[in-house]
Computed example of a mutant assay.
Amino acid sequence: MKRLLIIVLLLSAVSCGQKDPAPGGEPVRIIFDTDLGNDIDDVLALQMLLNYEKEGRAELLGITLCKANPATIAFTDGYCRFDGRGDIPLGYAYDGVTPEDGTYLLPTLEASFGGEPLLRPARTIDSGLPEGYKLLRRLLAAQPDASVVLVAVGPLTNIGNLLVSEADEFSSLSGRDLVAAKVRRVVTMAGLFGDEFDFPEYNVVCDLEASHRTFELCPVPLTTTGWEVGNLLPYPHESILTDFGDPEAHPLPVAYRHYMQMPYDRPTWDLTAVLEAVEPGKWFDRSPKGTIRIAADGRSSFEASETGMQEYLVIPQEKAAAALQALVNCTTGKNLKDMNP
């Protein structure tokens, strides 16, 4: 761990945003589906997307929340307002999973700095947010064909519901046909691959039915980053304490320090999905094309095939330090002024 951190700190020239993420250098149109409130990596992944948007590398069309806890609405709204995106469309999985409060939602919502609330949410459970899959339908229907990247980093409730949805006021297409028409690519943080570990991955088993729907029905290319990838890239806690100004004045370090007892370096599971979505093929290797299958107990497997449209990320040891530095830079906004879209 110490050796990896030393190598990372030496790679200061590595930056977020060194490769055009979309044809013609256009910002990547992203919809972010997250279970923010469960693990802290969702917050870091959200900050990455907000930073990418500031540099013109991504356009964050909306956020759908798959954690069925009302505090996730207030936290996400307040966090986006803190970062200047109070207008971001939000959807919510009212019938979702993981209703528990977790460890950082409520303390961060209650935090203050200089006598003022740190987060100032304007939307709550009483705001009448649309169902997550309904917001997905509305946002997708308004986009050009084959233009959107769906990034899903939690249980796949909203994505699964979208794929089996029927025609509505937003589109005459079924959910699957709507995805086929509007989505260029799906990037998920889900599953576990390789031979080193063997257990059902959390996001998959939390909503097993939705996981089956997603991997079996997705009609467009799908890339997943498995548990083993983010596990190899622990986010350095030193960055949390030093890269966001006064750690009492920014909701990210406040939430990070409430999630677990410091010091700890949390794996970057969800962050790797964002990095791959905006900068495809730059930081990670990929498996051959094929099909990802989810067993009855939630374990994931992969079958290569010439006709398959699914793949998973691979992180060789020699690429780990550079990838981790990219994740840190994109989360902190480091070198932002020097990045060209």
Rank of each mutant, 00 (worst) to 15 (best):
134 K>V: 15
134 K>L: 15
135 L>N: 08
135 L>W: 07
135 L>A: 09
136 L>Q: 03
138 R>L: 04
140 L>Q: 03
142 A>T: 07
143 Q>W: 00
143 Q>E: 15
144 P>C: 09
145 D>C: 09
145 D>I: 09
147 S>P: 13
147 S>A: 14
148 V>Q: 07
149 V>K: 08
150 L>M: 13
150 L>R: 08
151 V>G: 06
151 V>N: 09
151 V>H: 06
152 A>I: 09
152 A>N: 11
154 G>F: 04
154 G>L: 02
155 P>S: 12
159 I>Q: 05
160 G>Y: 05
161 N>L: 13
161 N>G: 07
161 N>Q: 13
161 N>Y: 10
163 L>R: 00
164 V>K: 06
165 S>Y: 00
165 S>G: 04
166 E>A: 13
168 D>Y: 11
169 E>P: 02
170 F>Q: 13
171 S>V: 11
172 S>L: 11
173 L>D: 14
174 S>P: 02
174 S>D: 13
176 R>K: 15
176 R>M: 11
177 D>K: 12
178 L>Y: 06
178 L>H: 05
179 V>F: 00
180 A>S: 05
181 A>Q: 15
181 A>K: 15
181 A>G: 11
182 K>G: 11
182 K>M: 11
184 R>D: 12
185 R>D: 08
186 V>P: 01
188 T>N: 12
190 A>R: 06
191 G>Q: 05
192 L>P: 00
193 F>W: 10
194 G>K: 07
195 D>P: 13
195 D>K: 14
196 E>Q: 13
196 E>K: 14
196 E>G: 08
197 F>T: 13
199 F>K: 09
199 F>T: 10
200 P>W: 12
201 E>N: 07
201 E>D: 10
202 Y>E: 13
204 V>T: 11
204 V>D: 01
205 V>E: 04
205 V>C: 02
206 C>R: 15
207 D>W: 00
207 D>A: 00
208 L>F: 03
209 E>Y: 03
209 E>S: 03
211 S>V: 01
211 S>K: 02
211 S>A: 15
212 H>S: 07
212 H>Q: 12
212 H>I: 07
217 L>F: 12
218 C>N: 01
221 P>V: 12
222 L>V: 09
223 T>E: 08
223 T>G: 05
224 T>L: 09
224 T>H: 07
225 T>G: 13
225 T>P: 01
226 G>S: 06
227 W>Y: 14
227 W>E: 14
229 V>K: 00
